[in-house]
Amino acid sequence: MGVGDELRSRRVQRQMAHAARRRRSSLPGLLVVALVCAVALVAVAHARGLDLRRPGDLAALFRPQVVVQVDGKAYAVPRPAPAHGRLLPAVPVTTTGSYAFLHTVDAGPVGYDPCRPVRYVVRPQGAPPGGEELVTRAVAEISAATGLEFVDAGTTDEAPTVDRPLLQSRYGQDWAPVLIAWSTPRELPQLAGDVAGIGGSAAVPGADGRGTWLAAGRLALDAGDLGRMIHAGRADAAEAVVLHELSHVVGLDHVDDPDELMYPTTSRRVDLGPGDRAGLALVGQVACQP
Rank of each mutant, 00 (worst) to 15 (best):
V44T: 07
Y263A: 11
D51V: 07
G251A: 06
R210Y: 11
D157V: 11
G251N: 01
T266N: 07
L282I: 10
V178Y: 12
A81T: 15
V204Y: 08
Y99G: 00
A81N: 08
P124E: 13
L246F: 00
P117C: 14
A138I: 07
P177W: 00
D276A: 06
P290F: 01
G273M: 02
G126L: 14
D225Q: 11
V93H: 11
T161Y: 09
L272D: 02
V118E: 06
G131T: 06
A232P: 03
H84W: 07
P274T: 05
A144F: 03
V93S: 12
L219I: 06
W182A: 01
P264C: 02
A202P: 03
A237S: 13
G130I: 01
R14W: 08
Q13I: 13
A17C: 06
A74N: 12
M262K: 04
L30H: 15
R137N: 03
D236F: 06
P92D: 12
D222W: 11
L166P: 00
S267R: 14
I142S: 08
S267A: 10
C115G: 03
Q190F: 09
R186Y: 11
T156A: 06
D259A: 14
V122Q: 09
Q168W: 08
F101I: 07
V110S: 05
P274H: 01
Y99A: 03
A140H: 08
T94P: 06
A127G: 09
E6L: 14
A40W: 11
A59K: 05
A140N: 07
P185E: 06
H248D: 00
H84Y: 09
G275N: 00
A43P: 07
R24T: 15
V67T: 13
L102Y: 01
H244N: 03
L179K: 04
E132A: 13
A40E: 15
V250G: 02
G251S: 12
V121H: 06
A59W: 07
D152K: 12
A181N: 06
L243V: 01
H231N: 12
P129Q: 08
T95M: 05
H84R: 09
L243Q: 02
G279H: 02
R269K: 14
L226H: 08
R123I: 03
E245W: 04
L226Q: 05
P264N: 11
D236Q: 15
G209C: 05
I198K: 08
Q65M: 08
G224Y: 06
L7T: 08
R10M: 15
L7S: 15
L179A: 09
C115K: 03
A281R: 05
E245G: 02
D259Y: 00
E260C: 00
G279L: 03
V44P: 14
R268D: 15
L188D: 12
I180C: 04
D256S: 10
G126I: 13
